[in-house]
Design a protein around this nucleic acid. Structure first.
Length: 160
DNA sequence: ACAAAAAACAATT
DNA sequence: AATTGTTTTTTGT
């Protein structure tokens, strides 16, 4: 997996892994799931602090919404997919197919756009699943990343 | 440096 | 195993 060259302004803790934050100026530009064995790093910026607070709130109650200044950058198609994903309410899932149909595209293209999502969790790409199973996560179909997707769905009451 | 071609991809039938 | 749409990487000029 390829990590960005810029440094994380904070590395927070999730039950199944770590969660890295990258910001530029006054907005968050990227979030990344990181391997569970990485060292934590306390937020060094007001924005990182704010995310840490909201993350803690989400861990306590999956119903809360993230409210952060973000700058999503991507192609037109990717932003359309991300907009569809943002429209999925907490505790609900949607299939790649369903989103593809709305956009006049195909499921596989939607999956690829999900993988390109720079703001996982805030843009809840974990709520998008395949027709036959759980689908992939962060460009993996197994390993601790997919475990993280399972955990998130479970946290929202969608899996046993 | 650019345009074209090929390959890759979180899927579905 | 064939196919889909989009993005990324490779190849040719």
């Amino acid at each position: 997996m390829r990590y960005p060259d810029r440094a994380f302004s904070a590395v927070l803790e999730l039950p199944s892994c770590r969660f890295g934050v990258i910001e530029s100026g006054d907005v968050i530009t990227e979030l990344h799931f990181l391997a569970p064995d990485l060292p934590l790093k306390a937020p060094t910026t007001p924005l990182g602090e704010r995310l840490a607070v909201q993350l803690a709130a989400y861990l306590a109650d999956p119903g809360i919404q993230f409210d952060l200044p973000v700058r999503p950058q991507g192609t037109v198609f990717q932003r359309q997919v991300w907009a569809q994903i943002c429209a999925i309410p907490t505790g609900r899932v949607r299939q790649y197919q369903a989103i593809a149909k709305d956009l006049g595209s195909v499921a596989r293209a939607v999956g690829q756009a999900c993988g390109a999502n720079p703001l996982p969790l805030v843009v809840p790409c974990h709520r998008v699943v395949s027709a036959t199973g759980i689908g992939g996560f962060a460009n993996h179909t197994d390993g601790w990343l997919i475990q993280t997707k399972r955990w998130l769905l479970w946290h929202e009451g969608l899996l046993i």
